[in-house]
Each structure stands twice: as structure tokens, then as C-alpha cells.
């Protein structure tokens, strides 16, 4: 920029609050956050919101179309599936699985990734080599095939899905953290801390980590959308959450058999996936724009 802008005193608030204000100005991102919030509320308050029991079968309502189509019923707004279960209620309960798995996997993976990435980037040497090799090997497998293999070995179940997804997901934050750490550890304020007598722990946690969190948070949110798709894919393949528990992936999979006669069975859970993933992606892009100085201004 110009040399004039260097001299004016910045407003008297913290960097974080300024970033947050930038983010709030981004309308699209704010809309996405609201969509995400709606989904979160759905997961928490599912029993209160859902009009029906998601597992209640009713063969008389088998493949009942959505309300606005002939033969529909306003009590079952989005229609019913092959076993006569209410699709809306199942989507609401299914959000629990998707969001739970998305959040848990990302938190787990980010935690592990930060530890490994910080160690690799800060200590370099053999630590970096070992972690780097593990990362390379894990990256070598296609993600989905890897997860399918693991699920086949461990058997289905919620905990196993989380493990299968987190097992490889940590590689992404790890690489981000390592790269940022390599850059930040060379900065003078890190050297200053060492000159003052600070140890490795202090430098990694207090000096480096706070300065690299923005890109990590941004990457993690983007990846959360990915994890949700992966979970849906596993469920679609029958390796995910087991019936009768509702999951968006398995719902899409169930509807496949009737796709010509009853399109709504697959379409509405599919739309839910698209909407949530889109909302997370847009929000994370807004986050990136607001928090990563390389993208702002």
C-alpha cells in the first residue's frame, strides 16, 4: 500500500475483534452461519421438533409422496420412505449423526494434527522425518477406500466411524500446522522469547500456536464439510450407522431402490447434505477472508 497508510493509528481493539467484525459484515457468510445454527438446533432439540418418531414404521404410508403432491398428507410434509417412516423426522434425527460425527472427527483430528504438526515443524530433524513419512503414507491411499477398508476390519458402529475418519483426517491439519510453524519459528519474536530464556514448550504453545490458529480453524471447517460427506458415503455403502438409526447417507442409499417411483425418499436427505456442506463451506470461506490477512484487503 502507500506509505501514508502506515502511519495512522489502528482502532483501539484487538485483532480478533476486528476480524470478527469483518466476518459479521460478510452477509453470505452470516447467512451460512444461521443455516448451520438451524441444523445444530435440530440436533439438540430433535425430539421436540420432529413431528413423528423417526423409526415408527407404517406400511400403509409406504412411499407416501410429499404433502404438496397428490396423495400427500400435511402431517408428513416431506413424505414417507419405503417403510412408511416420516422423512422430515428422519432428516432431523439424521442431522444428529452427521453433525456429531463431523464435529468429533474434526476436533480429534485437529488436536492430533496440531500436536504432530507443531512437533514436526518446531523440532525438525528426525521428528519431522518420521511424522512426514507417516503423513506421506496415509496420503498415498485414497481416503474413501482407506475408510472402507478400516470399517470392514473394525465393523460398523459410531465409534468405529469416528476412528476410521479421524485416523487419516489429522494429516490435513498436521500439514498446515507444520508449514505455518516452520514459517513462524523463524520470526524474531520467537527468537526473542528464546533470548529471554523461554523453553520449547512455552515457545510452541504460547508464541507459535496462537499465531497459526487462524489458518487451522479455517482448514478444519472446510474439512468438516468433507467429513460429513464421507460419513454419508460410508452409510450409503452400508458401512456406517446401522439401521434403524437414521443417517442422511443411509437414507439416500435406502431411497435408491425407489428412485423412479418415489424420488423424494433420496432427494430430501440429499438436499440436507448439500445445504449443510454448502453452509459450512461458505462460512469457512468467510472465516478465511476475515482471519487470514493474506486474503483480506
Amino acid at each position: 500500500m502507500t506509505d501514508a497508510t502506515l502511519t495512522h493509528t489502528p482502532p483501539a481493539d484487538s485483532l480478533f475483534r476486528r476480524n470478527l467484525r469483518d466476518f459479521r459484515r460478510n452477509r453470505l457468510a452470516m447467512a451460512s452461519v444461521i443455516v448451520m445454527l438451524i441444523f445444530v438446533i435440530m440436533t439438540v432439540a430433535a425430539p421436540l421438533i420432529a413431528p413423528h418418531d423417526p423409526n415408527q414404521t407404517d406400511l400403509f404410508r409406504r412411499l407416501q409422496p410429499p404433502a404438496w403432491i397428490d396423495g400427500g398428507d400435511w402431517r408428513f410434509v416431506l413424505g414417507c420412505d419405503g417403510l412408511g417412516r416420516d422423512i422430515l423426522s428422519r432428516i432431523i434425527y439424521g442431522a444428529r449423526i452427521s453433525i456429531f460425527i463431523g464435529v468429533v472427527v474434526i476436533v480429534l483430528a485437529t488436536g492430533v494434527g496440531i500436536l504432530a504438526g507443531l512437533a514436526a515443524g518446531y523440532f525438525r530433524g528426525w521428528v519431522d522425518v518420521v511424522i512426514g513419512r507417516v503423513v506421506d503414507i496415509l496420503l498415498g491411499f485414497p481416503y474413501l477406500i482407506f475408510a472402507i477398508g478400516l470399517m470392514a476390519m473394525m465393523g460398523p458402529g459410531l465409534v468405529n466411524i469416528v476412528l476410521a475418519l479421524a485416523y487419516k483426517e489429522w494429516v490435513i491439519p498436521c500439514r498446515v500446522v507444520r508449514g505455518e510453524t516452520l514459517a513462524v519459528r523463524e520470526l524474531e519474536y520467537v527468537e526473542a522469547a528464546r533470548a529471554l530464556g523461554a523453553g520449547s514448550g512455552h515457545i510452541m504453545w504460547r508464541e507459535i500456536l496462537p499465531n497459526i490458529m487462524s489458518p487451522v480453524i479455517v482448514v478444519s471447517t472446510i474439512r468438516m464439510a468433507n467429513v460429513i460427506i464421507l460419513e454419508a458415503s460410508l452409510s450409503f455403502l452400508g458401512l456406517g450407522v446401522q439401521p434403524p438409526t437414521a443417517s442422511w447417507g443411509s437414507m439416500v442409499s435406502d431411497g435408491r431402490a425407489f428412485i423412479l417411483e418415489a424420488w423424494w425418499v433420496s432427494t430430501f436427505p440429499g438436499l440436507a447434505i448439500v445445504l449443510l456442506v454448502l453452509a459450512i463451506n461458505v462460512a469457512s470461506q468467510g472465516l478465511r477472508d476475515a482471519f487470514d490477512p493474506r486474503f483480506s484487503e
Binding site: 485483532l15 526473542a192 529471554l196 508464541e207
Partner: peptide, 14 residues
């Protein structure tokens, strides 16, 4: 002790 050249890079922004 040491005093650094770059008054921007030598202070932790957070």
C-alpha cells in the same frame, strides 16, 4: 539480552 531490528517481526502480534 538482545534488541532486534524489525519492530514488527520481533513482537508477538497476539
Amino acid at each position: 539480552q538482545i534488541i532486534f531490528q524489525d519492530p514488527y517481526a520481533s513482537l508477538n502480534p497476539r
